[in-house]
Amino acid sequence: MVRILLAMPQGLLRGALKYVLSTHPDMDVIAERDAVESTIAAVRSDAPDVTVLDLELLNGPGKDPAGAARAAHSELPDSKILVLVDPRRPGVGSQIAAVPPSIGFLAQTASPERVVEAVRRLAAGEPVIDADLLVAALTPTTPLTERELRVLEVAALGSPVKEIARTMSLSPGTVRNHLSRIIAKTGARNRIEAIHFAKEKGWI
């Protein structure tokens, strides 16, 4: 019996995944969590065989999935973790190659049945790396720098230039320069269009 912890936001995906997993006699969803702290506590107390972890619980947009997964593994060294990742994130495929074999990666767009298969393989000690994520490594990455992505993330919260500057410890002029370069690189007409474009591409 594979004992499973679902660590992901509440919603249709989690409900569908729980239902599908529960239909398999060799699988048991022992707990569900929607925050990092409660997930760590549940892993330590319930000792699931596999934790299915949505990357959005670990980090903000634009951060690297491999780094976030390694951070989770350092907190939960005895747990096998299946990380669900947005395949549109820049550099996903190139980042996941060097993680421990107890961490598997699957695209968030994968069907519940593919998650079932990945859970079984991970529980059996087999490596799990989604082919969709490897394909993502061959696609062009964002033209924006890490600093520009961060500026855009804060701007996407509706923050004015002065607030972005304060949040990032930059001068308002520097923030305006970043926004101008972002608009130029994305081919947008203004900041709002640049934000929408970056979200569609999965950059933020």
Rank of each mutant, 00 (worst) to 15 (best):
V2F: 10
I4Q: 08
L6W: 09
A7H: 06
Q10E: 15
G11N: 06
G11A: 07
G11T: 04
G15K: 14
A16N: 12
K18I: 00
T23C: 10
H24Y: 14
D26N: 11
M27C: 11
I30V: 15
I30R: 11
A31G: 10
A31V: 01
E32T: 13
E32A: 07
R33F: 00
D34S: 15
V36M: 13
V36I: 11
V36Y: 14
E37N: 09
E37Y: 05
S38N: 12
A41I: 02
A42Y: 00
A42N: 02
V43H: 07
R44G: 15
P48I: 05
P48Q: 10
D49I: 02
V52S: 11
D54A: 15
L55E: 15
L55P: 01
L55K: 06
L57P: 09
L58F: 02
N59W: 04
D64R: 14
G67A: 13
G67Q: 11
A68D: 12
A68T: 03
A69C: 11
R70L: 10
R70F: 01
A72T: 01
S74G: 04
P77D: 02
P77L: 01
S79F: 00
S79A: 15
R88M: 12
P90D: 08
G91D: 05
G93D: 05
I96F: 06
I96E: 07
A97M: 12
A97C: 04
A97S: 12
A98I: 00
P101W: 01
L106N: 08
Q108P: 00
T109Q: 12
A110G: 10
P112S: 08
P112D: 09
V115R: 10
V116W: 08
V116F: 08
V116R: 10
V119Q: 10
R120I: 03
R120Q: 14
L122E: 12
V128R: 12
V128P: 12
D130R: 11
L133S: 12
L134I: 15
P140F: 05
P143V: 01
P143A: 05
P143E: 06
P143N: 08
R150G: 00
A156H: 04
G158I: 02
P160T: 06
V161S: 04
K162I: 01
I164L: 04
S171T: 14
G173P: 01
V175P: 10
R176K: 13
R176V: 06
H178Q: 13
H178D: 13
L179K: 06
L179I: 09
S180N: 13
R181Y: 03
R181E: 14
K185Y: 00
G187E: 02
R189T: 12
R189L: 10
R189D: 13
A194N: 05
A194P: 04
I195S: 08
H196A: 12
F197M: 08
F197L: 13
A198E: 04
A198D: 05
A198G: 07
K199C: 00
W203H: 06
I204F: 08
